[in-house]
Design a protein around this nucleic acid. Structure first.
Length: 296
DNA sequence: AAGGGAGCCTGGCGGC
DNA sequence: TGCCGCCAGGCTCCCT
C-alpha cells in the first residue's frame, strides 16, 4: 500500500488523535511484526505524551515527551484505524463497537482525549511493517535512516542535485528512483506515474538523463516537477486505494482513479496527441507500466 | 561496485 | 464451487 502520499495521509488522519495526547497503554497482539518489538516496548510508551507526529519518507515518527521516538513503518499492508469518538472524527467516518477486534490487529494504542478514550489500532496482514523505539536524537543513526536520501517534497530536491545523484549511473531510471538512498519515499506506483508525466522511459539509463541532448538538466527539471506534482496530487486525493487500503477514518483514497500508467497495461495512453498503448515490463522484479510511444 | 533475484507474510484474484 | 498458482504498495541481504 503505502508510499509517501499514503503515509502522509495516514499521518494527517492520526494527528488529531495522537499529537499532544497521552498514550495511557499499549496492547500488543503478538511479539513481533517484521521484527520483534524492542524490549519493554509497551511499558516505555505507556504514560508518555506524543509531542509531535512527523513523517520521514515512508516512516511515521512519534516524538514522545520521554525523549524517545516511536518509529512506525506500514510495510506493504499496514493501516491504522481510530476507534472511539472524541468529537473530531472526519465526516462520514464510522464507529466501531468497543473491543471489536479484527484479524491482524497487532498494536492498540489507548489514548486519553480529554477524559475519553480513543484507540488507535495498527492492522497489518502481511506483517512487513514494523515499529521501533529509539532516543529521538538517535533516529538519524537508525539503520533505516542512516543512508536515507532526500525528501522528494522538500526544498533539497532540484534538477541540479538530481544530476549529481544520477551522474554516471548505468542503472535504469526506474530502479534509481526506487532506491531510497537517492530519493526517499517514492515507490513503484508513483515512480511509474512520474516517469509517464515526464515522458521518460523507465528503461532509460539514469546517467543518460543528466546531459541529455548535451544540455545539462534539460530532462531532469521536468522529472523533478513531475515527481512533485504526482505526489502532491496524490496527497490531495487522500492517497491510492489499492486493495483494501483505507485512510484512518475508513474512507478510501481516490488517486488510483487518476493513474495514467500504473496498472493500465493494454489501455490507451492518455497523453494528448499520443496514440500509444501502456505496456507492462518487469524491472528488478517489479512491474513497470509505461507508454513506449511517448516515454523515451 | 552495482544490479538482479530471493525472501519475509498473507490475502485476493483469475484460471482451470 | 473449489483449489492452485500468481501477484501485490517495501526493504534488505546475498550472489554474481
Amino acid at each position: 500500500m503505502p508510499e509517501l502520499p499514503e503515509v502522509e495521509t495516514v499521518r494527517r488522519g492520526l494527528q488529531p488523535s495522537m499529537e499532544g495526547r497521552i498514550i495511557k497503554a499499549v496492547e500488543l497482539g503478538r511479539p513481533d511484526l517484521r521484527f520483534p518489538f524492542p524490549p519493554d516496548f509497551a511499558e516505555r510508551i505507556a504514560g508518555t505524551r506524543i509531542r509531535e507526529l512527523a513523517r520521514r519518507a515512508k516512516f511515521l515518527l512519534g516524538h514522545l515527551d520521554s525523549g524517545e521516538c516511536l518509529i512506525m513503518h506500514l510495510g506493504m499492508s499496514g493501516s491504522f484505524r481510530i476507534e472511539g469518538n472524541a468529537g473530531h472524527s472526519a465526516p462520514g467516518s464510522f464507529h466501531y463497537e468497543r473491543n471489536d477486534r479484527k484479524a491482524h490487529d497487532h498494536v492498540i494504542f489507548h489514548i486519553d482525549e480529554n477524559g475519553t478514550e480513543t484507540r488507535v489500532i495498527y492492522n497489518d496482514p502481511r506483517r512487513f511493517g514494523f515499529m521501533d523505539l529509539v532516543p529521538s536524537k538517535q533516529v538519524q543513526d537508525h539503520p533505516f535512516f542512516a543512508k536515507m536520501g532526500i525528501e522528494p517534497l522538500g526544498n533539497a530536491l532540484s534538477a541540479e542535485l538530481l544530476a549529481k545523484l544520477l551522474a554516471g549511473k548505468a542503472t535504469p531510471i526506474k530502479a534509481a528512483l526506487l532506491d531510497q538512498r537517492v530519493i526517499a519515499g517514492l515507490g513503484n506506483i508513483y515512480v511509474c506515474e512520474a516517469l509517464h508525466l515526464a515522458c521518460i522511459s523507465p528503461r532509460r539509463r539514469a546517467g543518460s538523463l543528466v546531459r541529455a541532448n548535451g544540455c545539462p538538466g534539460s530532462r531532469l527539471s521536468p522529472l523533478v516537477q513531475a515527481i512533485r506534482d504526482v505526489l502532491n496530487e496524490a496527497i490531495a486525493s487522500g492517497g491510492s486505494s489499492l486493495r483494501d487500503h483505507r485512510q484512518t477514518d475508513g474512507t478510501l483514497g481516490y488517486f488510483q482513479h487518476q493513474f495514467k500508467a500504473y496498472d493500465r497495461e493494454g489501455a490507451a495512453c492518455t497523453r494528448k496527441g499520443c496514440d500509444g498503448t501502456i505496456k507492462r515490463i518487469v524491472q528488478s522484479g517489479r512491474s513497470s507500466f509505461y507508454c513506449p510511444s511517448c516515454q523515451r
